[in-house]
Design a protein around this nucleic acid. Structure first.
Length: 438
RNA sequence: GCUCUCAUCGUCUAGCGGCCAAGGACACUGCCCUUUCAAGGCAGCGGCGGGGGUUCGAAUCCCCCUGGGAGCGCCA
């Protein structure tokens, strides 16, 4: 039975690197069939917090990284570490130094292991220093606790970041001293910032939660992360977790550290947004709309879904999508008077009035009818749609970029369209009908 | 400094001795479509770090150099 584990220390948020590690463990174990164990490495009494732990678990759940056992806490297993440390003391393989217990590394020979992704790795034992097992405060050190935990928890495959490669020989020495079977190791490539150094806060957002708040979809983050150090034979289409599981193979993991590319993540996020059903998306949008202060409960659910449907695929994040939907979910528009005057200026006030009258007659108020009515009115007058279309767009949305203007008009409904047009025209033309560029 | 390790377009990668005058994706640049944007279509830019070998033949194997990364805590 294959058993893997993800063992974060609760000293901060779940960051991209951690999520990447958890993800690969998850893909591997779901692919091969086995159990995913979650272990909290909270032996650093000073830096560990319950809040950090919660953030990490939330982050994993958000991404859909499920675990089968745990969370287990190292802080609750202190006796275990103590007992094994004493065993080493009795065997003469470790010694006391003050109130700490230290492992005596062999001076001769070499320690070898075959990493699933890196291949053969060998280190001269002579280059290793003695290893502290139990700290003066009675807590085990990381290198000792992992060994005891991974063994007693029956972990068969240790999958973790490349930064642990130098620790591995030390741990293997301890496994052997304790008479434990050594598990398989698979080290994952590091995730770097644009400057090619280990990704950290100074590179920008590194916490998974930040991406959630910015409006990234969990599936998108999941897919993007899976692409760092691994790749499906054919890229191009988006893949959902279950599909990735089917294609995943630890042996295909790359060794070269990968630079985190936000541009690509954004693009992937856009694809996933586009792929969502309007109902699902509308649900996910609630948080972002509310954050914008829109009174979304004033509108029927079906309308909200229509709003999403017309906009999805044009935004990189849900936050952007919320921003783009303002004119559909807010009743008042803030025009830039100069821009409005410029757009409305493509036609005379009386022409606008005529067009508006024409629009009032459209029934039912659907895309095809609006399109026909507006175009035939324009044809009769010999006016091009280009300028008027843009004017309509700005007058109705206070934006220069929106989905197709006839789609927008349909969604807005005849009443709002007429109201907004009349107001826009009067703002520019004024009561007197003799208006100037502002 | 010591130890381990990596090295294909700007970025993520395919490639595991001949099918590679190196393929895809993101980004970027044109063009088409067009009521704006996006999408879509087409075209383009751009890379095997360097030097030695091995071989009939090397991006692929070996060595050296160079460059990068990680680790070297009674942190995890």
């Amino acid at each position: 039975m294959i058993r893997v584990r993800f063992a974060p220390s609760p000293t901060g948020a779940l960051h991209i690197g951690g999520a990447h590690t958890a993800l690969f463990n998850w893909l591997f174990v779901r692919r091969e069939g086995g159990r995913f164990v979650l272990r909290i490495e909270d032996t650093d009494r000073v830096r560990s917090t319950k809040e950090a732990e919660k953030t990490i678990l939330d982050g994993l759940q958000w991404l859909g990284i499920t675990w089968d056992e745990g969370p287990f806490y190292q802080s609750e297993r202190l006796n275990l570490y103590r007992r094994y440390a004493e065993q080493l003391l009795e065997n003469g393989l470790a010694y006391k130094e003050g109130s700490a217990i230290v492992f005596r590394t062999p001076r001769e020979g070499a320690t070898y292991f075959k990493d699933i992704v890196w291949g053969d790795i060998e280190v001269e034992n002579g280059s290793l220093k003695d290893i502290v097992l139990i700290k003066s405060d009675g807590m085990p050190t990381y290198n000792f606790a992992v060994v005891v935990d991974d063994h007693t928890m029956g972990i068969t495959h240790v999958i973790r970041g490349e930064d642990h490669i130098p620790n591995t020989p030390k741990q293997i020495l301890i496994y052997k001293a304790l008479g434990f079977e050594v598990p398989e190791f698979a080290h994952l490539p590091m995730i770097l910032g644009p400057d090619k150094t280990k990704l950290s806060k100074r590179h920008g957002a590194t916490a998974v939660g930040e991406y959630r708040n910015m409006g990234y979809l969990p599936e998108a983050v999941f897919y993007y992360l899976s692409l760092l150090g691994w790749s499906p034979k054919e890229e191009g289409d988006i893949l959902y977790p279950q599909e990735i599981v089917k294609l995943f193979d630890l042996r295909d993991v790359t060794k070269r550290a990968a630079v985190f590319d936000l541009e690509k993540l954004k693009w992937i996020n856009k694809l996933f947004i586009k792929d969502k059903s309007p109902a699902e998306l509308a649900k996910a949008m609630r948080f972002f709309w509310l954050e914008k202060g829109y009174n979304i409960d004033d509108y029927p659910e079906s309308y909200l879904q229509d709003v999403v449907a017309i906009l999805q695929g044009r935004a990189y994040t849900l936050q952007e999508l919320a921003d783009y939907s303002d004119y559909l979910l807010k009743e008042s528009l803030n025009y830039d008077k100069i821009i409005l005057a410029e757009f409305i200026g493509v036609m005379k006030g009386e022409e606008w009035n005529s067009l508006i009258e024409e629009i009032k007659k459209i029934d039912p108020f659907v895309v095809e009818n609006i399109d026909n009515a507006v175009r035939s009115w324009l044809n009769k007058r010999g006016v091009k749609l280009k300028g008027v279309g843009q004017a309509l767009r700005y007058a109705l949305t206070a934006r220069r970029v929106t989905p197709g203007i006839f789609e927008v008009m349909t969604l807005l409904g005849k009443d709002r369209v007429v109201d907004r047009l009349e107001r826009a025209v009067s703002l520019v033309v004024g009561e007197s009908s003799n208006w100037q560029d502002a």
